[in-house]
Lab assay of single mutants.
Amino acid sequence: TEYKLVVVGAGGVGKSALTIQLIQNHFVDEYDPTIEDSYRKQVVIDGETCLLDILDTAGQEEYSAMRDQYMRTGEGFLCVFAINNTKSFEDIHQYREQIKRVKDSDDVPMVLVGNKCDLAARTVESRQAQDLARSYGIPYIETSAKTRQGVEDAFYTLVREIRQH
């Protein structure tokens, strides 16, 4: 089974770092803004072998026109913010609204991801993020692309959301 996953969120929150940590098991430290990259990885989730087709997208506003296209083809979405960047957390709402509009559905598989949880300088409390996820009816997972904490959990949870859909 193949799953088309799309990673969305503001610029600099760590979308590529999360994806590369999942696929290649290493942490990319330097920031190089993405336009669009796709990665494929075969994994076993709950005993089922599946192929993850992951689209890593641009957070930069100037590429926002490309969003409709990949939102149409994606089956599930990782909505990523950084726990030390309140603005990126506030941006999640717009991504969710755009996904709902493009998919013409209120019920699209999504996982809210709070990345950079290895950093002490948190400005978005776990509780705020949990409340937001609960209001959307989606899971919330904290990750660190640096330490790998929660990385597999985030992507695998999204696959489970798609399966249950």
Rank of each mutant, 00 (worst) to 15 (best):
T1R: 03
T1N: 01
E2P: 02
E2C: 08
E2S: 00
Y3Q: 08
K4T: 05
K4G: 02
K4A: 09
K4M: 06
L5Q: 01
V6Y: 14
V7T: 08
V7A: 11
G9M: 07
A10F: 06
A10M: 06
G11Y: 14
G11A: 15
G12W: 14
G12R: 14
G12Q: 14
G12Y: 15
V13G: 14
G14D: 05
G14K: 00
K15A: 02
K15G: 01
K15H: 00
S16M: 00
S16R: 00
L18Q: 03
T19V: 03
T19A: 12
T19D: 03
I20A: 00
I20W: 06
I20C: 07
I20E: 05
Q21T: 13
L22M: 02
Q24N: 01
Q24K: 00
N25F: 08
N25Q: 08
H26Q: 08
H26A: 01
H26Y: 08
F27N: 00
F27A: 06
V28S: 06
V28A: 03
V28K: 02
V28I: 12
V28C: 00
V28H: 03
D29S: 04
D29M: 04
E30S: 07
Y31D: 05
Y31P: 08
D32C: 12
P33R: 12
T34Q: 01
I35C: 08
I35P: 02
I35R: 07
I35L: 10
E36R: 01
D37M: 00
D37W: 06
S38K: 03
S38H: 02
S38P: 00
Y39W: 06
R40V: 03
R40E: 01
R40I: 01
R40Q: 04
K41C: 11
K41R: 06
Q42F: 05
V43P: 10
V43A: 06
I45C: 08
D46P: 03
D46I: 11
D46L: 12
D46W: 06
E48W: 05
T49W: 01
C50Y: 04
C50W: 12
L51N: 04
L51A: 01
L52Q: 06
I54P: 00
I54F: 12
I54M: 05
L55T: 01
L55C: 02
L55H: 09
Q60F: 15
Q60H: 15
E61S: 11
E61W: 13
E61N: 11
E61D: 07
E62I: 02
Y63C: 15
Y63N: 15
Y63K: 14
Y63F: 08
S64M: 03
S64P: 15
A65H: 08
A65G: 09
A65S: 05
M66T: 13
M66H: 11
M66S: 14
D68R: 07
D68T: 05
Q69A: 07
Q69P: 06
Q69F: 02
Y70Q: 04
Y70V: 12
Y70I: 14
R72F: 08
R72E: 01
R72M: 00
T73N: 06
T73E: 06
T73V: 03
G74A: 05
G74E: 09
G74M: 08
G74N: 08
G76R: 07
G76H: 08
C79L: 06
C79I: 05
C79N: 04
V80I: 04
V80Q: 00
V80D: 01
F81P: 02
F81S: 04
I83T: 09
I83Y: 13
N84P: 02
N84M: 11
N85V: 07
T86D: 05
T86W: 04
K87E: 00
K87N: 04
K87T: 05
F89Q: 02
F89H: 02
E90P: 05
D91S: 08
D91E: 04
D91H: 09
D91W: 10
D91K: 15
I92T: 04
H93V: 08
H93P: 08
H93M: 10
Q94C: 04
Y95I: 10
R96Q: 06
E97T: 06
E97M: 05
Q98A: 06
Q98N: 00
K100P: 01
R101P: 03
R101G: 06
V102N: 01
K103N: 03
D104F: 03
D104K: 05
S105Y: 05
D106H: 07
D107W: 10
V108D: 03
V108R: 04
V108K: 05
P109D: 03
V111H: 08
V111Q: 06
L112D: 11
L112M: 07
V113P: 10
V113D: 01
N115A: 14
C117T: 13
D118I: 00
D118A: 11
D118E: 14
D118F: 11
L119Q: 15
A120T: 11
A120K: 10
A121N: 09
A121C: 06
T123L: 07
T123Q: 11
V124N: 13
E125H: 11
E125T: 11
E125Q: 12
S126P: 11
Q128V: 07
Q128H: 10
Q130E: 09
D131K: 14
D131Y: 09
S135M: 00
S135Q: 08
Y136D: 08
G137V: 09
P139T: 11
Y140K: 03
I141G: 14
E142S: 10
T143R: 07
T143A: 12
A145M: 13
K146H: 15
K146V: 15
K146W: 14
T147S: 12
T147I: 12
T147Q: 13
R148M: 14
R148W: 15
Q149N: 13
Q149G: 13
G150S: 14
G150A: 10
G150V: 15
V151F: 14
V151T: 14
V151R: 11
E152V: 10
E152F: 13
A154S: 06
F155N: 04
F155H: 08
Y156L: 13
T157W: 13
L158D: 04
V159I: 14
I162Y: 12
I162W: 07
H165Q: 11
H165V: 11
